[in-house]
């Protein structure tokens, strides 16, 4: 069983967490017309990196979103940062 760090609750069981998305995706500006290709890029394109990754996760029990940095091969956690502090 792996332990993930929630920036609010501390180290908790991996089953309490859910992967949300890769960090750093920006939704297209819908005040302007958006091309299909741009929507597709936002909705579907994944970086899917092998090695160090930055991802948005949710700690289901406290409901907070945060950024977790991991290694996608070794599963080692490299850091977790609250999203509330305006990091992203």
């Amino acid at each position: 069983m792996q332990v993930f760090p929630c920036p609010y609750c501390g180290p908790r069981n991996e089953t309490e967490f859910r992967y949300i998305a890769a960090a750093g995706k920006t939704r297209p500006d819908t005040t302007q017309p958006v091309q299909d290709q741009d929507w597709a890029r936002y909705l579907y394109r994944q970086r899917n990196e092998k090695g160090a990754v930055r991802e948005v996760w949710m700690h289901l029990t406290c409901g907070e979103l945060f950024v977790m940095e991991r290694d996608s091969v070794t599963m080692e956690v490299l850091g977790s940062t609250a999203l509330r502090d305006g990091v992203e």
Partner: peptide
């Protein structure tokens, strides 16, 4: 396993 990963081994849950 609902964790994006490249390590060819599984998790316990």
């Amino acid at each position: 396993d609902r964790v994006p990963a490249y390590g060819q081994r599984g998790n316990m849950p």
